[in-house]
Amino acid sequence: MTTHTSTAARGGGDSSAPARRLRQPPRRSSGLPDWVVPYALLLPGLLVIAALLLYPLYQMIDMSFHKVGLAQIKTTNPRPAEFVGFDNYTHIFESDLFWPSLRNTFAFAAVTVALTLLVGTLVGLLLNKLGKKMSTFVIVGIMAAWATPPTAQAIVWKWLFDSDAGVVNWALNLLPDWLSELVFGRSDWSGEPWFNDTLTLYFVLIVAVVWASFPFIAVSVLAGLKSIPSELYEAARVDGSRAFTTFRKITFPLLKPVFSVLMVLSIIWDFKVFTQLYLLAGGTVNREAFNLSLWSYAEAFSSPPKMGLGAAIAVVLTGILLVITFVYVRQIVKTEDVR
């Protein structure tokens, strides 16, 4: 029964688009021919994207095959850029720093995306359950986390994990010694440095990034929940469906498209995390802690900028992301689309 309801709500997915179009009643009040409508709707957005981003994208790819410095892109008397073929790309893959950075990036993104989605979804569901006053209270709290400027975020987390003045070491010291010994094998946390070792540094980074990005997931999930017509839940309640079944049969299928989008976007963002890592790691001095963004910054975007190399790194990064997200993107675009 519930299954049936949810499919119905999604617009009876079976009927193919052209067939449905035939069923549609004739338009009376719209002057535009049918085929023009989507393009007309798309136009403003497309203009902005095309005008601003398409050309720079092309330029980026073109640059990745050239040796480009600032002298080559100046407005006044630019110098010709030397064509170097795949040199920039070879340089990337031969660099000692590429593979460790790639590993850090992947490990970080995997853990962070999973945690962010999990925490965000749970909080979103919680917000939906809470009473109105309580939910507003919690939402304002998580919004404050989201709204904190990135620089302040990174620095505050750095302070919280500070070896001497940090709240974390202080709190760990408060644990009863036997418990601390049991869990961590030690009881004295005074002066424990968190930012020396790559592993602990990334632990702090994960906490900081999850903290900053779960509010967004929670709010999006909440918005998704709110847009589910409440009739569906009423129907389920009448059917005597249990909470978990309701979630599995109604909530999850309806939220799935939102999830997929959030997942893809989280992967993209966590792959590119920069500001927090840069500040937590103290700039570029610790190269074991590089991720792809920080490495490309050290390699290509800091002064003197090697723009060709920087562009090549950007192309590689985009390529990797496309491959990773391909499965999801295809699923999103193909299956649960135009009905």
Binding site: P38, L53, P56, M60, T75, K272, S296, A314, L317, V329
Partner: peptide, 26 residues
């Protein structure tokens, strides 16, 4: 339609640093 959607994603994927100067000039 599909190309448009994927294009949007690509725009998100490119590191901001790589587009800064071109976009600025634009």
């Amino acid at each position: 339609r599909t190309s448009f959607l994927i294009l949007l994603l690509i725009v998100q994927m490119v590191p901001a640093e790589a587009l800064l100067i071109s976009l600025f000039t634009m």
